[in-house]
Simulated assay, not measured.
Amino acid sequence: MRRLIVLLLALVVVAIGLSFATLNSAPINLDFYIGELSLPISLWLVLALALGVLLGLGSAIGILTRQRWQLKRLRREAASSRQEVSELRKLPIRTSN
């Protein structure tokens, strides 16, 4: 049932995207420093969205990698602390008089 809902949702998104592309098919010229490129408005928007997604993923990967390293370090410290507590529990208790 869940797959069917996801499939229907994907079809709706594709249909909206196709209708958007047909409504915005006028070519736009973008002048780069080394040349000029003429593509439909909808394609320029999709390219801008894709570039934004790639840049966002790139920055997120850096943050996630740093957090994973920190998590590994903290887990090692926690394991070391557990081991130390375990060793301390084995020691006999001395009372001072």
Score class of each variant (00 low, 15 high):
L91D: 06
A60Y: 10
I28P: 00
R75G: 02
A60E: 14
I63K: 08
S81V: 08
E36F: 03
R2W: 00
R73M: 09
I16R: 07
R94W: 07
L11K: 06
M1Y: 03
R94N: 03
A48K: 03
L49W: 12
N29E: 14
S42N: 03
I41P: 01
L8G: 08
R82Y: 05
S42R: 00
P40I: 02
N97F: 13
V14D: 05
L37Y: 06
I16V: 13
D31G: 05
K90Q: 12
S81N: 11
V6T: 09
L45I: 10
T22D: 05
S19P: 02
S19F: 13
A26Q: 15
R66H: 14
L4H: 11
L74N: 08
I61A: 09
L8T: 04
P27M: 05
L23W: 08
A26E: 15
F32Q: 08
V6H: 07
N29Y: 03
R3K: 14
S81C: 03
G52D: 08
V12L: 15
S19T: 14
F32V: 03
S59W: 13
D31F: 12
A50S: 14
F20M: 05
P27Y: 05
E84S: 12
L11F: 11
F32W: 14
F32T: 06
R3T: 07
T22S: 10
L8D: 01
L11E: 11
T65R: 15
V85G: 00
L39W: 04
L64M: 07
I63V: 13
V12A: 11
L8N: 04
L49D: 03
G35Q: 06
I61C: 02
R3A: 15
I93M: 10
A21L: 06
S80V: 09
L7A: 06
I93Y: 09
G52F: 07
R3F: 12
L39R: 04
L9S: 12
I41V: 12
W44Y: 01
T95W: 11
S38C: 02
S25N: 15
R2A: 10
P40L: 01
P40K: 02
Q83G: 02
F32H: 07
L71G: 09
I41H: 07
S80C: 06
L88M: 11
Q67R: 13
L8E: 03
Y33W: 07
V53S: 07
L91H: 03
R89P: 00
R2Y: 01
S19H: 15
L88V: 01
L8K: 04
L11S: 12
E84Q: 15
I28F: 10
L55M: 06
L47A: 11
L18D: 00
G58N: 05
E77D: 11
L57V: 09
W44E: 00
S42F: 00
I41C: 00
L74H: 04
L23Q: 09
S80M: 12
Q70F: 09
L18C: 04
M1G: 10
S96F: 15
G62P: 04
